[in-house]
Nucleic acid binder design. Structure first.
Length: 584
RNA sequence: GGCCUCGUAGCUCAGCGGAUAGAGCAACCGCCUCCUAAGCGGUAGGUCAUAGGUUCGACUCCUAUCGGGGCCGCCA
């Protein structure tokens, strides 16, 4: 969805200052100080690591020194002279090997705070994705049972990524691919059939290759309610197809409920089955064939560890090596049926033909070996015009009071998404899972994540928001309903305003890298700066947001915390976490 | 054997080609007559796995090696 609003122009102060720097460089070119064929692409304007260096720094002189054949300091000094002409820039000086440190006019930071207030839920939004259609496919768990914790991580990650891209201006579709076409749904059907017989009072045994989980009992009972005894003592050919459809639908019902419990809402569910017997797989393969990418052949056995029963077989192969894969991949089994790769190709072909500019797949880490061939397929089908980024989410290791928590599907001790949400809540589960890069393993300790302390980033950020809301309520009691133009005096206030100013830039970086975890870490930093200022108010009453008996001063002071509240709220909405009004 | 991924403080982890590599936990010393102490300040803790390379500049990019995890033709 593209955000439509009459809000003021988006404000990214770092991008603005960069355009000032570029303009100064352009002027230097027209004056003959710099040659005319320079690229400014690598010129960056960034927050300095050390605040003592100023508000911002640019590497322009160092980046341009070599292509311009000039000493970095010479460029830097000429650039400094130009930059100081700008009203927003109070001071510019050359430092270190050729950095230019900038100090902005203090009024700029007050303007940023005001902007955040007026932009409200639009603050931080970016136009970088405008006009770009992106499809994010995530979860896509087999419809054979409830979602477990691993799925939860993929669900939360994919959802936050989609929200992040939406916030950055992309036209985003959230999509779930239902694997309802393979052998696993036959297994599901047979398992449900056993529960159906059980519901009719028969003794049943769950052999290897069936799903023994209790969650299928109500499905068996529901099947009984629907068809009575019609399927008893009948062969598979009589009931399999119907039971499969019935069971798959029941499982998708479960999964939708699980997704809802953790706050995930898909725009579209796409059925694998719909690709079969409709000619769509054949269409996709034919497209590849026309490009000479499909052939009959025999693969070499894998080097090193060769399976015992290896024997060469001729298969239909996709020449994925033409697009960077290590070996060509089979799309058809030796018995003439499709491998799982074939419908996946057709599915991505369908996504491409729906007009997306970029595709993102969120897979579990165990699908790592699948990345290259999928990218190869998308490149081949789209003539490399559509990008595919595949994000892998690593395992979730569960702990209870520091003790590892073993999951076993067979023993029925696997932890479901619902278990996690029931115990810790959606907000905590989401934030914890997002305070980690997607490709790093995640330790999830039930005891620790429910602990309400600094140890737990969720509560730390929530607490900051609750404090903001508390201040606003108290201000309203004093008769101050809305913030006035902010008055920034203390270094702690400027630090906080600068942090707020970084939010739009953070969004750009996070969206560029498809890394929603950056938002979570940023919010933690912002909360930290806020708590620091709060405590400074304990010692220095002039820094308190509420100035007793002085409504005018209070109105000016609450602008900053109000803006913090806006940013936390915007950031948490990307993560799908509720900003709380108070802590209880 | 090949491919993917990770390796940063005692522990858990951030880190956008940029300056003296940062948080939290644990340890130690402090801060509530005061807007929520679910908070804040300080001390201490590092050969960024190793060795090369590219670069004005490398935790970041490239190559190799070591170590952990994952994957590797008729499972999706």
């Amino acid at each position: 969805m593209i955000h439509q609003s009459g809000k003021p122009p988006l404000m990214n102060i770092f991008a603005e200052i960069r355009t000032v720097v570029i303009a100064a460089l352009d002027a230097m070119v027209s004056e003959g100080v710099l040659p005319s064929d320079l690229s400014f692409d690598n010129v960056a304007v960034e927050p300095p690591r050390d605040a003592a260096h100023g508000d911002m720094a640019t590497n322009a002189a160092m980046v341009l020194a070599k292509p311009a054949s000039k000493a970095p300091r010479a460029i830097a000094e000429a650039l400094v002279a130009k930059l100081t002409e700008n009203a927003q820039i109070e001071m510019a000086e050359v430092a270190g090997p050729g950095f230019i440190n900038l100090r902005l006019n203090p009024s700029v930071w007050a303007a940023v705070v005001e902007h955040a207030l007026s932009a409200g839920d639009g603050f931080g939004r970016s136009t970088r994705g405008t006009g770009t259609k992106v499809n994010v496919e995530y979860v896509s768990a087999n419809p054979t049972g409830p979602l477990h914790v691993g799925h939860a991580r993929g669900a939360v990650f994919g959802d936050a990524l989609a929200s992040l891209l939406d916030f950055a201006g992309y036209d985003v579709t959230r999509e779930y691919y239902i694997n309802d076409g393979g052998a696993q749904v036959d297994v599901l059907a047979r398992s449900v059939y056993l529960r159906y017989l059980e519901a009719h009072g028969q003794e049943v045994a769950f052999e290897d290759g069936t799903y023994p989980g209790d969650y299928l009992k109500p499905v068996g009972a529901a099947l009984k309610a629907k068809v009575g005894d019609a399927f008893i003592d009948k062969g598979e050919q009589f009931w399999l197809a119907e039971v499969r459809d019935f069971s798959t639908e029941a499982m998708m019902g479960l999964i939708r409920e699980d997704l809802a419990a953790i706050g995930v809402k898909m725009d579209r569910f796409y059925s694998e089955k719909s690709l079969y017997d409709t000619g769509r797989i054949e269409d996709a393969i034919e497209t590849l064939k026309q490009n000479g990418l499909i052939y009959r052949g025999t693969l070499e056995p894998p080097k090193g560890k060769v399976p015992e029963d290896w024997e060469p077989r001729e298969q239909t192969l996709f020449r994925s090596t033409a697009y960077g894969d290590d070996v060509d991949r089979p799309i058809m089994k030796s018995d003439g049926s499709w491998t799982y790769f074939a419908p996946d190709i057709a599915y991505h072909w369908d996504k491409i033909s729906r007009g997306y500019d970029a595709l993102i797949d969120v897979f579990g880490a165990d699908h790592g070996g699948y990345v290259k061939r999928m990218k190869a397929a998308v490149a081949a089908l789209s003539e490399s015009k559509v990008s595919l980024d595949i994000k892998l989410t690593q395992l979730v290791k569960l702990y209870k009071d520091g003790e590892p928590f073993k999951m076993s599907k067979r023993a029925g001790t696997f932890v479901t998404l619902r278990d996690v949400v029931d115990q810790v809540g959606s907000d905590v589960a989401r934030f914890v899972m997002l305070t980690r890069k997607n490709d790093a393993p995640l330790d999830f300790d039930f005891a620790k994540v429910t602990e309400q302390s600094k140890d737990n980033a969720v509560f730390y950020v929530q607490y900051a928001h609750a404090r903001v809301r508390s201040v606003m309520r108290k201000a309203a009691d004093m008769g101050v309903d809305a913030p006035d133009a902010p008055l920034l005096e203390d270094e702690a206030e400027f630090a906080l305003a600068r942090k707020i100013a970084e939010f739009p830039r953070l969004i750009e970086i996070a969206a560029r890298n498809n890394e929603p975890h950056r938002v979570a870490f940023y919010l933690y930093d912002l909360a930290s700066d806020f708590h620091a200022l709060w405590n400074k108010g304990n010692e220095k009453t002039a820094l308190r947001f509420l100035q007793e008996g002085d409504n005018a001063a209070t109105a000016a002071k609450i602008a900053l915390p109000r803006a913090v509240g806006v940013v936390i709220s915007n950031g948490l909405s990307i993560l799908g976490v509720t900003p709380v009004e108070e802590m209880r």
